[in-house]
Each structure stands twice: as structure tokens, then as C-alpha cells.
Amino acid sequence: MNILFLTSPKTFQVHGGLSRQLHQTKVALENLGHSIEVTSSMLDHDHSAEIIHIFGASPDLERDVSRALNHEVPVVVSTVMYSNRSASTLRRALQIQKLTQFIGWSYKPDLNAKYRICHQATHLAPNTDAEGRLICQAFGISPQKITVIPNGVNVKRFEHSTPTLAVERLGFDEYLLYVGDLEAPRKNVQILLEVYKKEHNRLNWPPLVLMGRLGTKHPLQAQLQEDPMIHWIDGVAPDDPLLESIYRAAKTFVLPSQFETPGIAAMEAGLSNCSIAITQAGGTKEVFGSEVHYLDPFDEDSISQAIHLALSSPPSKSLFKKLKVLDWSEVGIQTEAMYHKICSGFSIHAFQQSDA
């Protein structure tokens, strides 16, 4: 099958979970014999694909969804979206938009773009059941239009990693680790730094290592210089061997995001023998169950308590066993089955009529 992967140009700039999901899904499907092309615009494509898979319901891709449908190509969207607001609150926001659009005032434009993308697409592939329920309830999408495709983890890579490169780079191990976008407000890095600076001396916490993209003029740069216990490593390419080594040398991994769906970095950390403190918001509990320490991302005391408990706890052996079956190869098999279902049992026009 010829498949086109489409995503926002921003995906490749961040090197975050979405780029990892796209890359690993591509590899898994190619191993199953499919041909994959990756682009950031339908204008650069000759429309020879049998199916188009969009990664991220990004507003800047809305026109590309329309272009794909105009050429009668089935469009799947891995939505990768969540909100701490209830479905009813999101519905009210959409209703306000309908009332205000006539006076030229755009209310929640990104939310409305995501709404339109989800309705236009042939099929949706959220990462978790929680994400799927929110989309159905907030946007009025039929559950039949949704197939949950979980995130995966490269089992061989992270299960057998070594700490050597990380120790050579940092000069120490057994640290508290965060891996992800440092600039995105949703990731809550500012709050993490405030909690760490306030608590690490009193509670005798190990050094904090932050790994991720951060512009030279970003306000966080100054804060990173204020405490010698805080160390920053710039973001690396997804296949850089330093990444798995950084996980392996850590004692505890923390992900204090406002929400996650469900957090590929935390899955990689769990396979790398880290104890984990992670946000309770989003789809995290579907993957991590009772094997991690959950935190309220809007409560500094909760963040501090979860980190301290994780630092005081051994890695979860049962979580390790659970993550071992979530290899990207299995994600590829599930994605392939979804494609066949869409191509054989559904038509674009049938979906458009069912959403009308």
C-alpha cells in the first residue's frame, strides 16, 4: 500500500513525542511491506497515495485535509489532542464561535479548526480511550469513526541501553530527569523548576537533568544558570544513542505536563529502569496504571510529593513487563489493520453523510 504521512513542519523542529510517533509508525509499516512518503504539504504531493495519514490535528493542516478529500483519498488523523476542560465546556466554546463569527470575531480558532478537521477526516486515531471519548463528546463524532491506536516504545533500544554515554557527558548518574519540549507551556517546565529549586536542598534530591529544545533567548535560560544542581542538554535527534543512555543513567523520570496522551518519553523511561512521577491528566492511567506516582500539574505540593515518592521508590517491574508488549511493531500491525478496515469497509462519502 502506498501511504502518505502528513504533519505540520513544527513536528520536525521539536523532536518530541509526535515526531517519534510518526517516525516509528513509518518504520513499523515499512517493515510490513508498505511504502511511506512523508510531507508537510499536500501541494508537494502528486496524489498517488492510497491513503493519507495526518499526525496531529494541527490547524495549519486544515486545507490539506480538504485537498486530500477533493482527490478522493481516505484521510486518517492521529489527533494527539486533549484538554483539561470538560466536553460540555468545549461544546459551549464551539457554540460561541458560531454566534461570533458573523461579527468578525474569532473565538478559540484552534479549537474550531480541530473540530472541522475531525469532521472532515475519514477516520480518527487517538492514542487513548480518554482522548477518543473527549473527541466524541465534545465534537459530536460517532465512535464508529474512531480507532484507538496506542503509542509504542522501541523495546530493544531502551531495554538494553547502557548509561555510559550519559555519564561521560554529565559526569554523574542517578539524577532526576525530564525529557521533552522545554518551551511548550503545556509541559509545565517552569513549575517543575520552581518546585525543584524550593525543595531539592530540604529533601536532599539528586541533580535535575532537563533534555529538550530551548531557544537561546528563552526566559528559562537564565533560570537554568541560577542553580548548579540543574543541568540542561539540548534536544537530540530521535535516533541519537545519547537519548537512551540519558534514560538509563537516571534514577527517576518526571513528566509534570498539564496533560499527556499518554507520554512516549515516560514509556521510554519506564523501559529504562526509572521510577516515574507523571501527570494524572490525559490518558496516562491507561498505560501506567498503578505502577507510577501521579501528580496534579496545577498543584506544586502534589508535584513535590510525587517526585519525592518516586525518588524513594524502586522501578516498577510490572510496568516494565507491561511496556515490553507495546513495541512499535505491534502499533504497526494495529495501524495496518485500521487502514484495511477504512479502505475495504468505508467510503469518504459515507463518512461525510454520517457526520452531516
Rank of each mutant, 00 (worst) to 15 (best):
residue 337 A to M: 11
residue 250 A to R: 03
residue 223 Q to L: 11
residue 44 D to A: 13
residue 31 N to V: 00
residue 241 P to G: 06
residue 42 M to W: 05
residue 260 E to V: 07
residue 126 P to E: 01
residue 33 G to A: 07
residue 41 S to H: 05
residue 288 F to W: 03
residue 83 S to Q: 04
residue 265 A to E: 05
residue 300 E to D: 09
residue 210 L to T: 03
residue 253 F to W: 08
residue 295 L to Y: 00
residue 169 R to Y: 09
residue 247 Y to Q: 10
residue 57 A to S: 13
residue 312 S to C: 14
residue 309 L to A: 12
residue 47 H to L: 13
residue 298 F to K: 13
residue 133 R to K: 12
residue 71 H to A: 13
residue 203 L to A: 15
residue 130 A to S: 08
residue 341 K to W: 07
residue 3 I to V: 12
residue 157 R to T: 11
residue 261 T to M: 08
residue 33 G to N: 03
residue 184 A to H: 11
residue 263 G to W: 00
residue 111 L to T: 04
residue 169 R to E: 14
residue 198 K to M: 08
residue 272 S to M: 07
residue 339 Y to V: 05
residue 263 G to L: 06
residue 323 L to D: 06
residue 240 D to K: 03
residue 270 G to W: 03
residue 355 D to V: 11
residue 36 I to N: 02
residue 253 F to Q: 02
residue 342 I to V: 15
residue 11 T to I: 11
residue 104 G to T: 06
residue 34 H to S: 03
residue 134 L to M: 14
residue 9 P to Q: 05
residue 152 G to Y: 05
residue 204 N to K: 15
residue 245 S to D: 04
residue 344 S to K: 12
residue 98 K to H: 10
residue 158 F to P: 01
residue 26 K to L: 06
residue 38 V to P: 00
residue 166 A to R: 04
residue 342 I to Y: 09
residue 188 N to D: 04
residue 135 I to N: 02
residue 196 Y to V: 08
residue 287 V to R: 00
residue 90 L to E: 09
residue 170 L to N: 08
residue 111 L to N: 08
residue 141 I to L: 11
residue 349 H to T: 15
residue 289 G to H: 01
residue 278 I to V: 15
residue 4 L to E: 06
residue 150 P to E: 02
residue 340 H to V: 09
residue 145 K to S: 10
residue 119 H to P: 00
residue 193 L to N: 02
residue 31 N to L: 06
residue 305 Q to S: 14
residue 215 G to I: 06
residue 285 K to Q: 13
residue 158 F to A: 08
residue 107 Y to C: 04
residue 113 A to E: 02
residue 288 F to T: 07
residue 168 E to M: 05
residue 346 F to Q: 10
residue 14 V to H: 05
residue 249 A to V: 08
residue 204 N to F: 01
residue 75 V to A: 01
residue 206 P to E: 01
residue 330 E to P: 00
residue 153 V to I: 12
residue 6 L to V: 12
residue 268 E to D: 04
residue 240 D to N: 10
residue 252 T to E: 07
residue 105 W to C: 04
residue 354 S to A: 15
residue 258 Q to Y: 07
residue 251 K to F: 01
residue 166 A to N: 06
residue 144 Q to L: 11
residue 58 S to Y: 14
residue 81 M to Y: 14
residue 189 V to R: 02
residue 297 P to W: 00
residue 301 D to L: 09
residue 105 W to A: 06
residue 100 T to H: 09
residue 241 P to Y: 07
residue 349 H to I: 12
residue 284 T to W: 05
residue 267 M to A: 07
residue 25 T to Y: 00
residue 308 H to D: 12
residue 61 L to Q: 03
residue 197 K to H: 09
residue 141 I to P: 07
residue 39 T to C: 08
residue 331 V to F: 01
residue 238 P to M: 09
residue 97 Q to D: 10
